[in-house]
Design a protein around this nucleic acid. Structure first.
Lengths: 138, 138
DNA sequence: GCTTGCCTTAGAGCTGCTATCAAATAGTAA
DNA sequence: TTACTATTTGATAGCAGCTCTAAGGCAAGC
């Protein structure tokens, strides 16, 4: 059994965030001990994990709550849960694509500056240097 | 030359966001026409692009402003700009890693539900089904 | 000259934390 | 026993980054 602090460390989240999530109804089964302290079971950690996963790909808290509630209802909601996961995955894939694009741009700029420094050149595009791979626009 | 609306469409950003960014000092060279309307040049679009890139990888607006200001100062700031881009790229790579992990989890859950549906099975883990690849905990 | 449409600014509202606070409890040390 | 420290609690305030609304300006078309 884990306290909030333990979970925070284990899952690399802040205690604040965990309390906020708990208040948002994301951990419906976390029990309290005799002193009203939340005690997370191993199973509760799995809830934390899935919530963290959904948040990490930008799922709104309202939608996370919806998913949790569907889990609680039981087997009749499996189809909806499946489609939620599918949509979430699709969004995550888009994010990955987007991130790859931005990384290409950052790499381009990194090389641009590296070259300026290495050859002791001026930034002839000052105040804005050429920032994209393809554009040659003024 | 482009109005806010044109830029919003072209860059897939909201007009609100562009005005907010403009107010934050991210587009210092955007000129107004006789009717006080912002007119973005091709060069201004490049600024929008780099700001969008930095935001997309989670750079704080304060830090973006800093970068813009460095660009304006000129060649003496190339070294600092270079290291900003390097750090940004490092963060983006971490995000990419994280995203890949979360995608693995989502794929696992997708298959889990798919299997339940295909074989008309019960979710024996209800209310929380087995969510991770490696954990066999309780 | 009236409507439509796009622009403007100011400012309120929203989401998702993040930080601060006081109070309760438990453990340790003198 | 008392004091001090550490941890947890809930309530609440504050913050970043949008997002939306309201009120008004200007230009073109009918």
């Amino acid at each position: 059994m884990y306290t909030i602090k333990d979970v925070a460390e284990k899952m690399e989240l802040s205690e604040h965030t965990l309390r906020f999530w708990a208040k948002s109804g994301f951990f419906p089964f976390v029990k309290r001990n005799a002193n009203n302290i939340r005690m997370f079971s191993e199973n509760d950690l799995e809830w934390v994990k899935i919530v963290k996963c959904l948040r990490a790909v930008g799922t709104e808290n309202k939608a996370i709550k919806r998913y949790i509630d569907l889990c609680i209802v039981g087997d009749s909601t499996i189809a909806e849960r499946y489609s939620i996961i599918q949509e979430t995955k699709a969004r995550a894939l888009k994010q990955q694509e987007e991130l790859t694009k931005q990384l290409a741009m950052l790499e381009y700029k990194e090389n641009f500056y590296k070259n300026l420094i290495k050859n002791n050149l001026k930034d002839t595009w000052n105040p804005m240097n050429k920032p994209t791979l393809e554009d040659e626009a003024v």
